[in-house]
Design a binder for these strands. Structure first.
Lengths: 226, 226
DNA sequence: ATTAAAATATGATATATATCATCCTTTTGA
DNA sequence: TCAAAAGGATGATATATATCATATTTTAAT
């Protein structure tokens, strides 16, 4: 059993507020999992009874809409926690979490987390702030969905992907999303997404390297996104 | 200065967890305001330094999008708290709050609320649960915006308005929204909203009584909303 | 009461986006 | 190594929705 004390990603989440005793306790009750790309960590409607701390790899949080399409609500990267909302609300998960890359995650049972809540005020304030940040993002995201065109949303999403997950040595976006997943992020049909990518490619704002995407003119792209 | 102890709406918000001493303290530091229909309580970008408890009347939380349209993110009714998110995040307000009816609200300074947070665990859990509920709603709302048609969203919104705010004696929706505001809720152009209302009227799912709206066939409307 | 302004309504038209079909390319697995 | 499947690309077309114009009704102001 690895020690939570020495886990670096902890520093990036609400868990940084925990003291030594609490970290030892957590190390004692946690379970580590390896999740292969494409596999779910949990699914919409599932009761999770705890939270996951992402140690490595990125996953998508998505929801199946009534028209059968999978809308991606948020991407989660190492250091972030998963499943806080449903644990606090005492409800089944509202979103599915599926690995976009091979992942390592640790599961911490609800019981322990709830104890930290009552014992450690800084920890609960951290969690609150994270959820408040998620709420702001969700509100902003909602407004974009309602008011921006697909092209604007695509441009904004590409910039987000570069800034949040960086680029490879060849300058292409590090995080590999299929066209279908990218369409699921911006809320459009896969064909429309592909078409607009071609268009951005032709007008030299981006470059398509096979299925990889490279941002060429970030300023123009940013202006396009508003 | 009126007593918070005797305020009924308190029972419907996170504040129900406060004890007598805390309520007395709150009564002592709060400020009551009367807001006329159409007036703002606070605006996007403003630093509020506290929260508002809605005693009477309904308000909209909205955000101006880059295309100049006002997107309504949420409606807030008596008993609910306003401005919790930005207070906890220590950020300026992300949304504007504007009265849809004459309102009575009480302002409680941040200092006191933060004290309740550390003193009263039930209170902070209540606030957390409320924000988690808002986050779930926002995520679901976002998926609807991305995946549903305007007609589906209009149908869903009409049902929401009836269930949340009820109907007048003549059966029309109690909460009066202009067509522009209704369009702002569903995220569409005012003309499109008006046109779809006419269409629903002609197919006898709703009835238009002047500018008031009456739901006639709720089942069909619900099926339309998915 | 009368006029001006705002809100509602409807038509004509343009545009963005979805859908369906087909082809090409890459990946996977037997 | 080859066939099959999945993913990506593009054209043709249908549809939903926005936009612009204008008329009508309601509300507000003088």
């Amino acid at each position: 059993m690895s020690k939570c004390e020495q886990c670096i990603v902890r520093q990036f989440s609400s868990l940084k507020a925990l003291n030594k005793a609490e970290l030892l306790k957590m190390a004692d009750c946690k379970t580590s999992y390896t999740i292969k790309k494409g596999e779910p960590i949990f699914e919409e409607g599932e009761v999770t009874n705890g939270i996951y701390c992402v140690k490595d790899g990125v996953c998508k949080l998505s929801k199946l809409s009534s028209n059968g399409k999978d809308q991606i609500v948020k991407l989660v990267k190492p250091g972030e926690l998963l499943g806080q909302r449903s644990m606090i609300s005492e409800e089944p998960a509202n979103l599915s979490a599926v690995a976009l890359e091979d992942m390592e995650v640790c599961f911490i049972p609800k019981k322990e987390i709830m104890q930290f809540f009552t014992q450690n005020n800084e920890f609960s304030m951290n969690v609150m702030k994270t959820i408040c940040g998620d709420l702001k993002d969700a509100d902003d995201h909602m407004v974009d969905m309602a008011q921006k065109s697909v092209k604007e949303r695509l441009a904004g999403t590409l910039i987000y992907l570069e800034e949040m997950f960086g680029v490879d040595t060849d300058g292409t976006l590090r995080l590999q999303l299929s066209r279908e997943e990218l369409a699921g992020m911006i809320g459009t049909a896969t064909e429309s997404c592909i078409r607009l990518l071609s268009e951005l490619n032709k007008s030299n704002l981006i470059e398509l390297v096979g299925k990889r995407i490279k941002i060429v003119d970030k300023n123009k792209l940013r202006r396009l996104a508003d």
